[in-house]
Write a protein that binds this DNA or RNA. Sequence first.
DNA 1: TTTTGAGTTGTTCGA
DNA 2: GTCGAACAACTCAAA
Length: 489
Amino acid sequence: MGCDDCNPQIPSDPMPVPSPASIGRTCTVVWFRDDLRISDNPALDAAVRRGRPVVAVYVLDETSDGIRPLGGAARWWLHHSLGRLGDRLRELGVPLVLRRGAALASLTDLVKSTGATAVTWNRRYGSAEIAVDTAVKTALANSGVQVESFAANLLHEPWTLKPTSGPHYKVFTAFWKAARSSGPPRPPLPTPGGTEPADRDIPSDALEDWQLLPRQPDWSTGLAATWTPGEDGARERLGCFLDQDLPGYTRLRDRPDHAATSMVSPHLRFGEISPFQVWQAALARGDESGVDKFLSEIGWREFSWHLLFHNPGLASTNLNPRFDRFPWRDDDDGLDAWQGGRTGYPIVDAGMRQLWTTGWMHNRVRMIAASFLIKDLMIDWRRGEAWFWDTLVDADAANNPASWQWVAGSGADAAPFFRIFNPTLQGRKFDPNGAYVRRWIPEIADLPVSLVHEPWKVTTGDAGGYPAPVVDHAVARRRALDAFKGLKD
DNA sequence: TTTTGAGTTGTTCGA
DNA sequence: GTCGAACAACTCAAA
C-alpha cells in the first residue's frame, strides 16, 4: 500500500521504566477484550497507577450466552494481535494470561488464584457482552474485589447523546451534529511506564493451542501480505494515510483503483488504536481538506454502535418491521456465485475476490456488492452480513449489520428503495480505466476499457472463461422495484 | 402540540 | 451529450 517510504509523524512510545520487584503484594487484573493496545488504554492505565503488579488476561469466550463467535478472518487477526500485545505488555512487566471458556468462570478463577484485589476493563456495548460484564462485576464485587470499567473505544458513550424527543438518534446527520457540538473528545492517554513485575508463573493457555489460524487449507497468505496486526501496524497505517492520502481523500475515497482510504478499520475493530488517537492525529493535520470527511467516517462508526446499543437485535431483526414481509429469494446458486466472485458483473466480482484474498473490500465496492446481493438477487441481507462477518478482518458487531440494513433500506437513515446500484455504471464511474477489476479478475485483464465492465458484450473469444451475468440487471431491477412496492401498506 | 424541513454514497427518462 | 424531474411515502428532529 505504498507505506514503506513514509515516516509516520505520530511519536513512538517511550521505553518502559521497570520498578524494583516486590514480593507478596496484591495485584491488579486488566481484562483485555476489543482493546488490544497499551497506549490510550484507560483500564491498563488505571491498573498501573494502582502501583501494584499488573496481570493482563484475554478470555476467548465461545460459550457465554449470546456471544457471537468470531469469523475466520477475525480469528486470524486475533491470533497475531494477541501475539503483539503480549510482547508489548511483557516490556511493561505485565504478563498476558490466555484463558478459554466462559468469562465469568475464567475471571473469578484468575482473581482467586492470583489474589487480585482489583479488576479493570474497558466497556463493551453489545447486549450479550454487557450481560457478561455485569455478571462478572457482580460476582467479583460480592467477593470484595474492586471493579472499575472505563470508556475507551467510542468517543461518546451511547447513552449520552439524546435527541430532544425520542429515545435515541435515528438520523446520522442529527446524531453527528449533536456529537460534534458536545465538546471535543478527550486527548489520548500516554503509554504507561513499567510496573512492578508480576508473578510470571500464572497458568496460561498457549496461543497456538487456540488454533485461530487456518490450516488445510491455509487461506491466510493474502491477509498476511496485506496487514500488520497490532498496535505498531495500526499507528503506521494511520500515519501513512494522514501523510499521503488525506489531502486527496474527498476526491479519491470512492475510487477502488486508488489506495486512498485509511484501511484502519480492522485496527479500530480490535482496538489496536483508539478513536481518540485517530481523532487527535487527524485534527493535528489542521484544516486540510478531507479532515472533516474522514472524521465523519469515524462518526459513522460511532453511529453504528449507538444503533446497536439501542437495538440489540441489529444483526438479526429489520429495524423497519415492514421489511419482515419482503419476499427474499432462496437462491443458493446465486449466493454461491456472489460469494465466489462469479456473478458475471466485474465490479461485484472484483470486490468479492478482493474480500476473499485480503479480508477487506473497498467501501464503495461493498455498497455495490451488497446492493447486488439484496436487490439484483433479492437474497436476504442477513446472508450477506453473515458472509462479511466470516471473511472481513474489520467486521464488528455494529458496523457490519448497520451497513447491511442501510443498503437494504430496512435500517436507520436508510437508502431509499429506488436506489439500486447499476454495477456497470458504478464500475465505469469509479473504476474508469478498469484497473481495479483487471487486478482482481485476470480473465478480463486484456479487455479494452470499453468492454471491461461489460464483458458479456465481447464477441470474439469468450472473455477468458469469465462467467456470463447470473441475472440481467435491467430485469432484476424491475423485479426488485416491484417487490418493494409490495411493502406498502 | 403542531409544523416544517430534511434525510451519505442513485438511476432512468424525456426534453 | 446534458440536465432536471421523477421515483413513495415516511419518519425524524428541532423549532
